[in-house]
Design a protein around this nucleic acid. Structure first.
Length: 569
RNA sequence: GUGCCCGUAGCUCAGCUGGAUAGAGUGCUUGACUACGAAUCAAGAGGCCAGGGGUUCGAAUCCCUUCGGGCACGCCA
């Protein structure tokens, strides 16, 4: 990949005493306004070392530098050295790289031989799948695709909430008020209402709680009826979740949930004892974290039973042994931050230096109309409902604008679902989000459909160009792409690899989402200003090359955030 | 009470390893379809970057503090 910044650093380095090319590289920045240049070097910091004014340094540097094929000209403006790139050279290098790499543009093999474990989605069995779950699912799925694109082997784990006292409650409720027919008919919805009914009834009949405890105990002891019901509830839930995962186009490599670790916690508890980390406190067993400046981590309740930290620790050790990961990533709500910080430290105290490879990737809370989502109060918006509304709206738009589209239902699904995922991945994951129907169902501006539409538009031109597009690479004369819009678009396309790296380092898919809007805007500006399918074959080929490069970038980027890039919409 | 996070245009958000005149989208007011797709493009209005101190040649960005909001702080996950 052509790296203009690197070329500029190489050019400047010999003239700046005491600084390596790499250091210069890190100093370079992009001017706020394109009219000021393409790459800038602020000279203020050098001022102290060189005992000269920044203005003087910039001017001397500009005079000393031999301009070469990479550079058009250099200007000095109040302490900045502003470099204007040789546009046609830059365009030539950048476009040919993108066209050569195509579907692989932006990818790398940096992760070769390394494994990333990503724990995401992880819904609780017998609970409805709502907007809140979408965040973990979409963020985790995108990280999966980003790491995979960069050559890592990824293991996606859906750590299902398939164990715990809620199953005692559910079985109790089922035995009292449920029936096989009702559950078969109502599925998860019926399970939820049984669960809600349990809580209502338990307010007046506390003995129900005791009954639930007993049912859970029977489940733990392997009681046949309890196991059968438990398994059944899981199957019903999974079937429903699977429909949603299919819609979202999200996959997992493992569905090992909480129950998978039931028999893996005792050895861990023993290990903690052997390492003398376990301490009795108020009847419970804890790991003291005072020297880490954290509250203690609870490992065993006073009745001897395990807690979620126990399970997470056992799971982490199992995953390390099984996958030998480079990183293990947990995508959950920000409310669990302390919990992760605590048990990560327990791993550290156990003497595992891979504790530093454990990463919590928190995201903000979803609220609706200022209120938090809660299954119990019924204050939820089901994801299924959102997706179907979005798909429906997309279909209406297609009927209005492109009624002859062949696979309109498939496309409506890809765009409707895309709109929802896109808006979920648009802002920094840590920000709290307020769910709004207007926003999710708005397809103008910074939205998934806008980017997908732009991509389809590019495809449409390439299609109309017919076999001319075969000549695109050979016929590229980059001096013909001389307009501002064309240059800006190429500049935007060129930073795709940087954006992927940033998203990967920050574990932040929104970097890509926002970048795609940037590409689409630049493409549409270009598209609007310059006719592509013109008579002049040379101009036509040059512009087609640009369109093709933009198309590849858009489609690669969309895949990284989990969206489809349909060729016709 | 303690800790962590957030506060930027009416609204939703970028920008936060310090750099030039703080950017998008949306909404509002206008203009552009006999055109390669108007789910588009262009123009306008809209800001004491929550307030106050400090560090610096330079602060939306770093430090301190106040205010406002969220979350968490032992037997739920």
């Amino acid at each position: 990949m052509y790296d203009a910044k690197l070329e500029v650093s190489k050019l400047l380095a010999p003239h700046v005493t005491g600084l390596e090319t790499q250091e210069i590289y890190n100093m370079l920045e992009v001017p706020p306004n394109p009219e000021m240049g393409d790459i800038a070097m602020p000279c203020f910091r050098l001022s102290k070392v060189l005992r000269k004014s920044p203005v003087q340094i910039a001017e001397e540097l500009a005079a000393a530098v031999q301009e070469n094929e990479h550079i058009e000209r250099i200007e000095c403006v109040s302490g900045y050295l502003n470099v204007f790139l040789n546009r046609s050279h830059f365009i030539q290098k950048t476009l040919s790289h993108i066209l050569e790499t195509g579907k692989g543009y932006g990818s790398s093999d940096m992760g070769k031989g390394k494994t990333i474990v990503i724990d995401y989605s992880s819904p609780n069995i017998a609970k409805p799948f709502h907007v809140g779950h979408l965040r973990s699912t979409s963020i985790g799925n995108s990280l999966y695709r980003i790491f995979e694109f960069m050559g890592y082997r990824c293991v996606g784990i859906n750590y299902l909430g398939d164990w715990g006292t809620q199953f005692g409650k559910l079985i109790t409720a089922y035995k009292h008020w449920g029936s096989e027919e009702a559950v078969k008919k109502g599925l998860v919805k019926e399970l939820v209402s049984l669960y809600v009914k349990f809580h209502q009834e338990a307010e007046e009949n506390p003995e129900l709680e005791e009954e639930a405890r007993q049912w859970f105990a029977r489940l733990e002891q392997g009681d046949e009826e309890a196991r059968r019901l438990w398994k059944w509830f899981i199957d019903i839930s999974m079937e429903e979740y699977q429909k949603i995962y299919d819609l979202l186009d999200v996959k997992f490599d493992s569905y090992n949930g909480e129950s998978f670790y039931n028999d893996k916690m005792q050895p861990v508890i023993q290990e903690l004892k052997d390492k003398e980390l376990l301490k009795e406190s108020q009847g419970a067993m804890i790991v003291d974290l005072e020297e880490e400046d954290l509250p203690p981590c609870l490992i065993l309740k006073s009745d001897g039973s395990t807690l979620y930290a126990t399970r997470d620790i056992a799971a982490a050790i199992y995953r390390k042994n099984t996958y030998d990961f480079e990183k293990c990533i947990y995508v959950t709500g920000v409310s669990q931050s302390l919990h992760f910080r605590q048990w990560f430290k327990v791993i550290k105290k156990m003497g595992y230096d891979w504790h530093k490879d454990l990463h919590h990737v928190p995201f903000g809370t979803v609220s609706i109309g200022g209120e938090k989502l809660a299954t119990r109060t019924g204050k939820i918006v089901l994801l299924e409902e959102i997706l179907s509304k979005a798909i429906e709206k997309t279909l209406e738009t297609i009927e209005a604008k492109n009624p002859n589209l062949e696979n309109k239902h498939e496309v409506a699904q890809q765009m409707g679902v895309g709109a929802v995922i896109f808006s979920d991945l648009f802002s920094n994951r840590i920000k709290d989000v307020s769910f709004s129907w207007d926003e999710v169902l708005n397809f103008d501006g910074e939205t998934g459909p806008y980017v997908q539409y732009t991509h389809a538009r590019a495809c449409s031109v390439l299609r109309k160009a017919g076999d001319a597009d075969v000549e695109v690479q050979a016929g590229l004369d980059s001096t013909l792409l001389s307009s501002e819009e064309e240059f800006q678009l190429v500049k935007t396309l060129a930073v795709f690899p940087d954006k992927i790296m940033q998203a990967l380092e920050d574990l932040e898919p929104s970097v890509i989402t926002r970048y795609l809007v940037d590409v689409a805007q630049n493409f549409n500006r270009f598209y609007h200003e310059h006719p592509i399918l013109v008579e002049d074959q040379a101009v036509r080929n040059a512009r087609l090359a640009l369109v093709k490069a933009a198309k590849s970038t858009l489609s690669n980027g969309l895949r990284l955030i989990g969206l489809h890039a349909p060729e016709r919409v």
